[in-house]
């Protein structure tokens, strides 16, 4: 096959795939600010759909942000020391624990949610609160934080750095705070972005765990897709994109930086 033709075919195919992914996103964003989507953009642009979304769903947006932030705090406090511990212990036990905490990724969210409901569904106030959703999000996102930090720990010689700090008089706690944590910052950052992004978009677990009073953004989205006109659903999706796309872009930039530094 001539080189040029082969290039053109592959290029067209790749463009087609890209269009498949990006076109609906663009159209939906457009729909969210179009007066009447059925009549097209010529019907005029408007912010009224977004305002209406805010009036209808502000609580879900705020709840999702608070939930994502709280999930992040929990995974940081629990996950970073745990990643350090697992790295230090090493061997079979560490692998087993890592395997168990990674299981929530292998088991469908629906099953985990069901398990949580069966176990804790009876305790009314916990079941009714956002904390019930928080627990699900923490379990689901924890492996991303732990593994992201462990990956960085594995790439730097942290035990020698620690010995260095110890030889200069630092206690275990001081070593952890002044040497370990600052040097795994890239892992913490990557893990944090992942945790926040996943928590903001989590639906499988949340749909089962939520109550009418603890709706999150994706739950609200599913609601609006089922019962609202296309423009409102689109405007709501637009709000979600505005929240999540910067996080995704930040992740891409971090990924590129990492692959560059690992090459040099």
């Amino acid at each position: 096959m001539p080189r040029k033709l082969s290039f053109t075919l592959q290029f067209s195919f790749t463009i087609l795939v890209a269009l498949f992914l990006i076109l609906p996103a663009i159209m939906s964003m457009l729909a969210g600010i179009t007066t009447n989507y059925a009549r097209g953009v010529s019907s005029g642009l408007t912010a009224s759909w977004i305002i209406e979304v805010w009036n209808l769903y502000a609580d879900t947006i705020v709840r999702s942000l608070v939930l994502a932030f709280t999930t992040l705090v929990c995974t940081l406090l629990v996950g970073v020391p745990a990643a350090y511990a697992l790295h230090t212990i090493g061997g079979r036990i560490a692998r087993l624990i890592e395997e168990v905490i990674t299981l929530p990724l292998a088991i469908p969210g629906l099953a985990i949610a069901l398990a949580l409901i069966i176990t804790y569904g009876g305790s009314g106030s916990f079941r009714q609160s956002s904390a019930f959703i928080l627990v699900g999000h923490v379990v689901f996102t924890m492996p991303f934080m732990v593994r992201s930090v462990m990956a960085v720990l594995g790439s730097i010689d942290v035990s020698t750095l620690e010995e260095g700090a110890a030889s200069l008089g630092a206690s275990r706690w001081q070593r952890f705070i002044t040497v370990v944590v600052p040097n795994v910052r890239p892992g913490i950052l990557a893990g944090s972005l992942m945790v926040v992004t996943l928590s903001l978009g989590e639906f499988n677990l949340t749909w089962m765990l939520h109550t009418p009073l603890t709706k999150t953004l994706p739950v609200g989205l599913a609601d609006s897709y089922a019962s609202m006109r296309l423009e409102i659903a689109s405007a709501y999706t637009l709000v979600f994109f505005v929240m999540i796309v910067p996080l995704l872009v930040a992740m891409q930039i971090m990924g590129q930086k990492q692959s560059r530094s690992s090459k040099s």
């Binding site: 020698t160 010995e163 200069l168």
Partner: peptide, 16 residues
């Protein structure tokens, strides 16, 4: 080690 007041130079230097 942190109580012994030693100074150590590591093979990889272990600079932070």
């Amino acid at each position: 080690i942190e109580k012994r007041n030693v100074g150590m130079v590591f093979q990889s230097y272990a600079l932070f």
